[in-house]
Simulated scan of single mutants.
Amino acid sequence: MSKLQGRFGPEYWDKYGVYKTPLGFNLTLIVLLRPFLIWLMSALTWRPDLDIMSLFFPSKDNFFIAIGIGSIALLPALVFSMRRPTSTPRWGDIWGYMRWPLLIAALLDLAWLLMQAANGHYQFSFYLASQIVLVSWVLLYLINSRYLTCFFSDWPEPEAK
């Protein structure tokens, strides 16, 4: 049990006595890992007339930079996948710092999107504008959420054998 568990009541705990995963965290991972998701959707459609990649990434360089920035968010996703009582407690020590890679990825992503908008001489692009809004919301969520502070400081206790 975490020392911060008194901050939010038992309705926020899962069956292992740790804080439930907030929906905002899952949406944050989706937004920050979107280059991988767009790449996957593009690979699954395989229609030459429907080029999803060019809607979001005008050039290969833009795609590779977006993948590089998104890969920073893979580390918290990996550690999150280990968040269970059967995992070693060392993952819990690492988990406490996973807000920082998400913040760094969101800041870099927003900076990259704003640079793309500036390079396009601020011509309106729906796909670019929607990404800027989503990443801005993610950044505000990561900075302002009190529940995330408790969520990142909580790790399941090892199971008794």
Rank of each mutant, 00 (worst) to 15 (best):
R84L: 14
A106S: 05
A106H: 06
I104W: 05
L78N: 09
I69C: 04
G70F: 06
W91T: 02
L102F: 04
A118M: 08
I69W: 09
G92M: 01
Q131E: 11
I67D: 09
V79T: 12
A77V: 12
A117F: 10
Q131D: 12
G68N: 06
M82G: 14
D109I: 13
S125M: 10
R90S: 14
P101S: 02
L107H: 12
L78G: 12
A73I: 05
F80Q: 14
R99D: 01
P76G: 10
T88A: 11
T88R: 13
S130Y: 13
S87N: 09
Q131R: 12
M115T: 11
M115A: 14
R90Q: 15
R83P: 04
R84T: 04
L78S: 08
Q123Y: 13
Q116D: 11
N119M: 14
M82E: 09
T88D: 14
R90E: 15
W100A: 10
I67L: 10
L75M: 11
S81P: 06
Q131I: 13
L74T: 02
Y127C: 05
M98D: 03
I72G: 02
G68M: 03
S130M: 15
I104V: 07
H121E: 15
R83A: 00
A129E: 01
I94P: 00
P85H: 06
L113H: 06
F64A: 08
W95C: 02
P76V: 07
L75N: 08
Q123A: 15
W91Q: 06
Y122N: 11
Y97P: 07
A117E: 13
G70M: 06
D109T: 08
G70T: 06
S125K: 08
D93H: 03
I69L: 09
S71G: 05
